[in-house]
Design a protein around this nucleic acid. Structure first.
Length: 665
DNA sequence: AGCACGCCGACT
DNA sequence: GTCGGCGTGCTC
């Protein structure tokens, strides 16, 4: 008699045992269909054992071992185990969340049976197309990473936009493929994968490149996963979820824009793909390259402490392109009625005269962030969220950007009947209209989530811009990343101050990274770029650092603040969050949770529960309780004990979860 | 987390 | 007399 120990997608800490006589140890890592309660579910076989601790009459028989896909490797299972412990979720929850959706059910794949890596012919190393002569700094970076190609090491590739970080990792990947190994490249946005995929295809003609992101069709995603697992894929390129791609001969990990907030998953399994990638590199004994012009303060501190190897690319790779000049316009003295100050308008005019392109950055979709009654002071609030409804003039709608709720724009104030309702503030739609009025002959193209949805792919829009079909681009952060436009020489930041004094301690770090990123869009190919930043606080250290392109100086300021305030990266945090219909219920749960915190809590601080910054979301009230510790291990031990207690609190109307290393408050 | 079973209020 | 409220208990 043999037994399977199966990980199942339920929030229970244990594995579940099943009888299965046909099982062999080779089935470890296979998916299996088992009866669970009164339905059948797919789990993952973690052990095959000769006896079970449960009495034989309590055990049920496994329905069917799913051998249509190769078993998950011991390394992969170990990575899932780590995530299970670190992020405080059951092994089954982690494993099923990490599998592509198509493999979470028992429907067999009609793909041909895979060969295992041992008998699969290793794909021949594709040729690498050399394009650019490398700078001395790039060569040095490549040399030092290559020197430890067979050992774990974290390399922080720190270089300004255009300094050739991509070229460095392309060369490293060429070396990896030449050895017959595989490379994994993580990027923050789905929108960035097609462009990068094209670049990879050009540079590695004939290579098998697999893409993994959440917008892919299930079949394609599963096929890519299987190619990665069989070893036939040489390069896997994807967003955060690609960190779980099975790679039997992984030789190099790359995390591009490593500081980007989207590497942190904010639902279900709340993992940081960057951190998981580092754990994975360590386990595999291979180098990992973190790339950024504005590294996260976590990584920056590791580099300062010598735990990460800092590799600087201080110059732009093309000798003829300099960093853009950043100029500030003080909107207290250079006021503007429509959001465009005199100096910015003049600079745009100059670009139009020279047939150069301008990018106006405003990270706020819609026409105006709120509609207000001039008479009684009513403002358009979302019924389900503690947020304002945004005016979308073109669709004649008020929309909540948090829950998606929409309503028609009212003709009269719902409170007092007054007909004089004013859109207050400025979004990209309104900015587009103002620019059209100021520059009637300019071709203006707005790019944000709304226009990308309506007018086809981001790729197609980029191509139109590249073909010179637009003079002025107005857009949100969708424009800040990735794509560089050859003829773009001016970047205007219209309302830079939003978020400058936000309550979230990570806000300035993010803001600096975003502004540096969007600044980098200006002037690349022999044409010097200019950045005009409209602000009411031109002396703010963030802007002063931005003018000097001084990430290091500003990072030091922020790190000093974080140390004094005892925030990460000087402490480690976890958040216990609760949501319920009423905030009191959520807070009540958290108070109960606090009283059940392990009493032996050396070096762990449990703070008071408080409502979240976005207190109501989609009709639910949200509160959280922050736990801090100076040691990661201490925090982990604390959380593990606490989690068991939390499970026993009976609070039927409350949904709760733990978020380790939270980034949203 | 689901999804049962189980024991008390307003309806065809 | 039943339909259904969500309390609590279990899932190998």
């Amino acid at each position: 008699m043999k037994f399977l120990r199966v990980a199942i997608d339920v929030p229970l800490p244990q594995l579940f045992d099943y009888r299965c006589d046909e099982a062999a140890t080779e089935d470890i890592g296979c998916r299996v269909l088992v009866p669970f309660g009164r339905k059948k579910v797919v789990g993952v076989i973690v052990e095959v054992v000769a006896r079970s601790d449960h009495s034989a009459d309590k055990l049920r028989s496994a329905e069917r071992i799913l051998r249509d896909v190769l078993p998950l490797s011991a390394e992969w299972i170990e990575l899932a185990r780590f995530c299970s412990g670190y992020y405080q979720r059951s092994l089954g929850e982690v494993m099923l969340a990490a599998l592509p959706p198509r493999l979470r059910n028992a429907r067999p794949l009609r793909a041909t049976k895979q060969k295992s890596d041992d008998d699969a012919a290793r794909p021949a190393a594709p040729p690498f197309v050399e394009r650019h002569r490398l700078t001395a700094e790039q060569l040095r970076a490549i040399d030092s990473i290559s020197a430890s190609a067979q050992a774990f090491g974290v390399f922080l590739l720190f270089g300004v936009t255009g300094s050739g970080k991509t070229e460095v990792y392309l060369r490293l990947i060429a070396g990896v493929l030449a050895r017959g190994a595989q490379a994994l490249v993580l990027v923050p946005e789905i929108a960035l994968t097609p462009a990068l995929q094209t670049a990879f295809r050009e540079r590695f003609p004939g290579a098998t490149i697999v893409v993994q992101h959440s917008a892919m069709a299930e079949g394609a995603r599963a096929r890519g996963w299987i190619e990665a697992q069989s070893g036939s894929a040489q390069i896997v390129l994807g967003t955060r979820l690609a960190v779980f791609a099975p790679l039997p001969r992984l030789g190099l990990l790359v995390v591009d824009e490593e500081q980007d907030p989207s590497f942190k998953q904010q639902e279900s399994l709340r993992y940081s793909a960057r951190d998981v990638a580092i754990v994975r590199a360590r386990a595999a004994g291979i180098p990992i390259v973190l790339c950024s012009a504005t590294p996260s303060l976590e990584s920056w501190r590791h580099a300062q402490a010598g735990r990460y190897a800092l590799l600087r690319l201080s110059r732009r790779a093309r000798a003829d392109s300099a960093l853009p000049e950043v100029r500030m316009v003080d909107t207290r003295t250079d006021a503007s009625r429509d959001g465009i100050s005199g100096p910015l308008a003049q600079a745009i005019g100059e670009r139009l005269a020279r047939s150069e392109q301008t990018l106006i950055f405003l990270n706020r979709r819609g026409y105006a962030p709120v509609l207000s009654c001039a008479k009684c002071g009513w403002i358009s609030g979302c019924k389900r969220c503690s947020a304002r409804l945004v005016v979308h003039l073109k669709d004649r709608e008020l929309r909540c950007h948090h829950c998606g709720d929409a309503a028609r724009i009212p003709r009269a104030c719902p409170e007092c009947g007054n007909l004089d309702l004013q859109p207050v503030g400025r979004g990209t739609q309104r900015l587009e209209a103002s620019l059209a009025e100021r520059f009637p002959r300019a071709r203006i193209l707005r790019m944000d989530r709304d226009t990308v949805r309506h007018r086809g792919s981001l790729e197609a829009m980029f191509a139109r811009i590249e073909a010179g079909e637009a003079d002025i681009l107005v857009g949100t952060q969708i424009l800040a990343k990735g794509h560089h436009f050859e003829n773009l020489t001016l970047v205007g930041v219209v309302d830079a101050d939003a978020g400058l004094y936000a309550a979230d301690y990570r806000a300035p770090e993010r803001m600096f990274a975003q502004l540096e990123q969007v600044s980098g869009r200006a002037g690349r190919a022999g044409v010097p770029g200019e950045v005009i930043l409209q602000t009411r606080y031109p002396n703010h250290p963030l802007y002063q650092a931005l003018v000097r392109h001084d990430f290091e100086g500003y990072a030091q300021i922020l790190l000093d603040e974080r140390r004094q305030a005892e925030f990460p990266p000087y402490v480690f945090e976890a958040a216990l969050r609760a949501e319920a219909l009423g905030i009191d219920v959520a807070l009540g749960f958290l108070r109960a949770a606090a009283t059940r915190a392990p009493s032996e809590r050396d070096g762990v601080t449990v703070y008071d529960p408080s409502p979240m910054m976005l207190e109501r979301l989609a009709g639910r009230a949200r509160a959280q309780l922050i736990v801090q510790a100076h040691s990661r291990v201490r925090l982990q031990l604390f959380l593990r004990e606490w989690r068991a207690e939390l499970a026993s609190i009976r609070a039927p109307a409350v949904r709760w979860h733990l978020d380790v290393d939270p980034t949203e408050f």
